[in-house]
């Protein structure tokens, strides 16, 4: 069973419905015990890093998350759910994350030009994935596939070997990471039509 962690941040039904669509059973749960009992775990997240981290702590999710990751269970982080896996974020100050993947969460610089345009922040819309280190969850995902992003901050891992994909937005930023049983995406698979559903299906089928 797949547990989608509900810690009061964001639209979780889309993730659940995405799994349903590909024939996997996923439950949305606010109970840390259910996280410990699940065989796969999804950490979604929208909103500010500090609020997300605060809610994870208040909800008693930090220990269960660290434990299921250490035990090797398939774990998927999405958007801020990816950023929370890192050491810290500069959003609204400097806030500590889960530090599963050493590295930092940084803001896109303002006023960067690409061709004739000043790039808007948030980075919002469909952009291409350049797969550098293919995790099982990316089986069948073609080079250059468009996926849906909406974010103003991006992750920078200290160890570049965990980078699974990059995407270009003024800079080439890390749009997916893969470290052992943990895969995480800055984009939203549940909003990325067929390619996104394929990633959810792959994740649901990882052994």
């Amino acid at each position: 069973m797949i547990a989608i962690i509900d810690y009061g941040m964001g639209n979780l039904c889309s993730v659940q419905k995405g799994f349903e669509k590909i024939g996997a059973k996923a439950v949305i749960t606010a109970d840390p015990q259910a996280v410990l009992e699940a065989d796969r775990i999804v950490l979604p997240g929208v909103g500010a890093f500090r609020d997300c981290m605060h809610n994870l702590e208040e909800g008693g999710f930090v220990e269960p998350i660290l434990r299921v990751i250490a035990e090797g269970r398939p774990f998927l982080g999405v958007c801020v759910g990816m950023q929370l896996l890192f050491t810290d974020s500069v959003e609204f100050g400097l806030y500590q994350g889960l530090n599963v993947i050493p590295g930092h969460v940084l803001r896109f610089p303002d006023g960067v030009r690409e061709q004739d345009e000043i790039l808007k922040v948030p980075h919002m819309g469909w952009n291409q994935l350049h797969v550098t280190h293919r995790p099982p969850a990316f089986d069948g995902i073609k080079e250059g596939t468009n996926v849906y992003f909406v974010h103003s901050y991006y992750v920078k891992p200290e160890d570049e070997s965990v980078i699974a994909a990059t995407t270009s937005y003024g800079i080439d930023f890390c749009s997916a990471v893969w470290k052992d049983n943990v895969v995480a995406t800055q984009f939203h698979p549940e909003k990325s039509q067929d390619a996104g559903l394929r990633i959810l299906k792959n994740f649901a089928e990882i052994h």
């Binding site: 964001g10 639209n11 929208v46 909103g47 500010a48 948030p122 919002m124 909406v150 974010h151 103003s152």
Partner: peptide, 8 residues
């Protein structure tokens, strides 16, 4: 924006 994020 504070409650749900600027993105939505």
């Amino acid at each position: 924006a504070e409650r749900f994020g600027s993105q939505c």
